[in-house]
Design a protein around this nucleic acid. Structure first.
Length: 882
RNA sequence: GGGGUUGUAGCUCAGAUGGUUAGAGUGCCUCGUUGACAUCGAGGAGGUCACAGAUUCGAGUUCUGUCAGCCCCACCA
């Protein structure tokens, strides 16, 4: 039983424990099980690669909530799974192919997809492995993938219904295009970054030779596609010129000067060149004024065949050449440095090109409204609350969602085009015949859906939708979504919209938002910086429990945290502390009658105190978990276990454990075991492995800790006695202990060396307390002997606390002056405090407005301070008289 | 341009509904290895809570403004 190693070595047991949990089906949930449903669907990690530290945080938070609720008796389901991550995964495999000297086009769609599935298999397994290593208690029997049969069926059904309702449409529009990924992107996949560029001022001559209009541009190469110049309708400078024709330099195309209120009169010359095919605003203006769309840039970022000598040039090379040519032709007025925002592909960081193409879109307005309402009504709550505002304002300004991607890896859009009649058909099942003309010459839409389309359905597709399964009925809406603030727009809002649309209810009641895990310098962990740390590496070195504890302590919802090895180390030290406290107990427990139960009267003050503190800790931890303040809960646990249980209580039991009174020993062991066992359960959601292995060694605990009940104050009610008195006792004794330790230290006496102490006690109550607790003082301070006296001993160092004067007699004469100086300093400190208290109590408005108990506590404070002052003054006088 | 967030000990961070002398971890200094633990114990130093106002009997906490950092959103070429 006690053959437990001297130090905590998590590597020796974590894997076996997890395997046992899994073998015993401890994670498994059924819809029929008893208890309130509690469900979390995992934010599915991308099968692009392995988990990083951000995932470790995300999973840890979820696992804490899940384990807590499971122990509480809720019918708890944590649904695991992974995401196919369209663009990202495809890019990885294409990169692999490039290394092999081939590409996806050579391979063909089918063979290529086989390769991606192989990739998925590899990394999907790696992710499952990592999640297990971390201790995640998900229901593995239900593991899902965004492209499995069920999710695909859900996607089809939702797509077709939205299409039939007119909420999905196909249109020729200007969209963000990534020339490298070779696909359209949605607005949120474009990252805007300010760049140092230039503003080129160009002059476009009037056809009639009557002069020029000056325009400015940051992208001169697009002038090849200009089909107009716009000015504001109220702009006096141009009023008489609107309607005239300009000649586009280099190209010699005739283009109109027209008026549109989009134009800002104040900017530049107030005239804008208009390129409908390559700028979203120009595109809109082009539609309003029937301008021609001249495409001059290809999908791959080179210039099109129709631009003469510029054809085939890369867009940036073309820019250089154009500028030269404009300058040579006298069309360049000036160039200024100019800072402006440029869009980049969030995947590959290539500068995005707005291009016109046929794409599929989801109409957002009607879907967004209920999603806004759900948050405003409180049906859906963000933790912390501040994200509500961000969520709402984003939804209020939402634009249609481009969902088609020119990729192969993903859900292929279920639309078929008939080559005979030209009609398009959208269908939930594959079709081989055109329903319009019964022709057989169909070809399927090649595009696939944006990854986030299937992710948006995740909370109900994983529960069985489109089937009306028992799980769907039982666990939807899920309880809470745990995710980082970086994907609120990508994912959270879309789940809410889809959930409301297809289930009529929000997908989750709470959204628990956490921050990013950063490196020691506060930088984001990224591949390019090479500053990422693999959670598995940390686990190998320090154990999963340490990593988990490190990730939650000192962190609050929504805030970023920094990764420090030293923080992991201190979490490991905490684990080691628990390990050794347990080892101590187990060693002493060897010849202990496990069935012994003390009578309430057998409990000592210290026993009652630790049980009372445990009860407070249970309440605090529970309350904070419920509020999602997991960092605070962890702090309370740390504090209770390390300071109160280990540093004080265990020390206080030693006299009994090593003494000869068998019953006293048994009582102490009983309480030690009781408190430890209860504490382990309280800590289990945070440190699942350690708590499991230790608890299994305790004589009175049966079964897995993860299925044991979560502690409650009620559970301790038979042992809780007279808590108010216990607190008072503890207060006095711990204060005396601190003062004695302090004095010893100042005297340079080893803390474990015996030293005589004299106490001068004012009230009978204090005397009673100290007499009863004198052994505790002795045990914690190595004070011996401790005597009570009415007089102040002359040759001694002294300290004073409420109601008690403490003296450490010295063997020789004391250095009177030094001691007086020390006491005077102490006296000043107390006087200062007393002065501020007196000030308050002399303030009539304080007396009349502050609550009675606040006033009373100030009075008590003052009385105590005055007592201390008088005691100190006496002592100083006594020393001065020497 | 709009919005958010942060500013508390050398460092990293806690401090819910305002109310004792503002806390923890880590680092630093002093002392201590006889059996739970040196991955430890005891003690200590270290903070005008960014700055300025306002509200209040009372502000680290609420409000306004200023400064500094970070982040998000945004179709002014």
């Amino acid at each position: 039983m006690s053959n437990i190693s001297k130090t905590y070595e998590p590597q020796k047991f974590e894997k076996e424990i997890y395997a046992a949990w899994e073998r015993d089906k401890n994670f498994h949930t059924t819809a029929e099980a008893a208890g309130e449903p509690y469900c979390i669907v995992i934010p599915p990690p991308n099968v692009t690669g392995q988990l990083h530290m951000g995932h470790a945080l995300d999973e840890t938070l979820q696992d804490i909530l899940i384990r807590y609720h499971r122990m509480k008796g809720d019918n708890t389901l944590w649904m695991p799974g992974t995401d196919h991550a369209g663009i990202a995964t495809q890019a990885k495999v294409e990169e692999q192919l490039r290394g092999e000297g081939t590409n996806r086009y050579e391979l063909g769609r089918e063979k290529f997809l086989e390769r991606v599935w192989q990739w998925k298999e590899k990394f999907g397994n790696r992710i499952s492995y990592q999640l297990r290593t971390l201790g995640s208690s998900c229901d593995w029997d239900r593991e899902r993938f965004t492209m499995d049969a069920g999710c695909s069926a859900a996607v089809r059904k939702v797509f077709v219904q939205l299409y039939n309702e007119g909420l999905i449409y196909r249109g020729r529009r200007i969209t963000n295009w990534c020339p490298k990924c070779n696909t359209a992107l949605s607005d949120i996949e474009v990252e805007h970054e300010t760049e140092q560029g230039h503003l080129w001022h160009l002059r476009y001559p009037f056809k009639d030779g009557s002069g020029y209009v000056e325009v400015a541009t940051t992208r001169p190469e697009t002038m090849l596609g200009d089909t107009g110049v716009a000015v504001h309708p109220d702009d006096e400078r141009y009023k008489n010129l609107v309607g005239k024709t300009l000649i586009l330099p280099l190209v010699n195309r005739e283009i109109p000067l027209f008026a549109d209120s989009y134009v800002d009169k104040e900017f530049g010359t107030g005239a804008v060149k208009v390129t409908p095919a390559h700028d979203p605003n120009d595109f809109e203006m082009g539609l309003r004024h029937n301008l021609e769309q001249v495409k001059v840039i290809n999908n791959d970022g080179t210039m099109t065949d129709d631009v003469g000598k510029y054809s085939g040039l890369d867009r940036y090379k073309c820019r250089e050449v154009i500028v030269k040519d404009l300058e040579a032709g006298g069309f360049l007025v000036k160039v200024e440095p100019y800072e402006h925002a440029v869009g980049h592909c969030s995947r590959c960081h290539t500068t995005v090109e707005p291009l016109i193409s046929k794409q599929w879109f989801v109409k957002m307005e009607t879907l967004a409204k209920p999603a806004i309402e759900a948050v405003k009504s409180g049906e859906l709550k963000f933790v912390p609350e501040r994200f509500t505002k961000i969520y709402i304002s984003w939804l209020e300004n939402i634009r249609d969602w481009c969902i088609s991607r020119q990729l192969w890896w993903g859900h292929q859009i279920p639309a078929w085009y008939c080559d005979d009649c030209g009609e398009m058909t959208v269908s939930e099942t594959d079709i081989e015949e055109c329903p319009h003309c019964h022709g057989k010459n169909l070809h399927r839409e090649e595009d696939v859906l944006d990854t986030w389309f299937s992710s948006a359905l995740w909370p109900f597709s994983t529960l069985g939708y489109p089937e009306e399964t028992p799980e769907l009925k039982k666990f939807y809406p899920t309880s809470v979504l745990v995710t980082g603030y970086d994907i609120i727009f990508f994912w959270v809002v879309r789940m809410v919209m889809m959930g409301l649309k297809f289930r009529g209810e929000v997908p989750f009641k709470h959204v628990f938002i956490h921050g990013l895990v950063r490196d020691e310098q506060g930088r984001k962990m990224t591949k390019s910086l090479g500053n990422g740390i693999d959670p598995v590496e940390v686990i190998d070195k320090y154990g999963a429990d340490s990593l988990r504890f490190m990730l939650v302590t000192g962190n609050t919802p929504g805030n970023d945290l920094r990764f420090y090895w030293s923080k992991v180390e201190s979490a490991r030290n905490f684990a080691n502390k628990i390990w050794n406290a347990s080892r101590f107990l187990l060693m002493n427990l060897e010849d202990f009658d496990a069935k012994f139960k003390p009578a309430r009267a057998d409990l000592e003050l210290a026993d009652m105190w630790i049980i009372s503190e445990l009860a407070k800790t249970i309440e605090g931890v529970t309350k904070n978990i419920e509020r999602f303040e997991l960092g605070e809960a962890a702090r309370l646990l740390d504090d209770f276990i390390w300071s109160e249980f280990c540093d004080y209580y265990i020390e206080l039991t030693k006299a009994r454990l090593y003494g000869s009174d068998a019953k006293a020993k048994a009582t102490a062991l009983f309480v030690l075991e009781k408190v430890l066992e209860c504490t382990l359960r309280l800590l289990h959601p945070f440190m699942p492995f350690l708590t499991e292995i230790i608890r299994q060694k305790l004589p009175n605990a049966q079964g897995s800790i993860m299925l044991a009940p979560y502690p409650t104050r009620d559970e301790l009610k038979d042992l809780l006695t007279d808590e108010h008195n216990v607190d008072e006792f503890a207060n006095v004794i711990l204060n005396v202990v601190r003062t004695i330790r302090n004095l010893k230290s100042e005297l340079g006496i080893d803390s474990r060396k015996k030293a005589a102490v004299v106490l001068k006690v004012k009230s009978a109550r204090h005397k009673e307390i100290l007499q009863e607790g004198i052994n505790y003082v002795a045990a914690l301070t190595f004070a011996e002997p401790i005597t009570f006296a009415e007089e102040k001993p002359l040759h001694a160092m002294s300290g004073v606390i409420d109601g008690v004067e403490i003296y450490l007699p010295l063997e020789g004469l004391i250095d009177t002056e030094k001691e007086i100086a020390r006491l005077t300093k102490e006296l000043e400190k107390i006087r200062k405090g007393a002065a501020s208290t007196t000030g308050k109590l002399q303030n009539e408005r304080f007396l009349s407005k502050a609550p009675a108990e606040v006033v009373q506590s100030e009075r008590d404070k003052l009385a105590a301070a005055e007592e201390k002052i008088s005691s100190l003054e006496q002592r100083i006088k006594q020393l001065e008289d020497l």
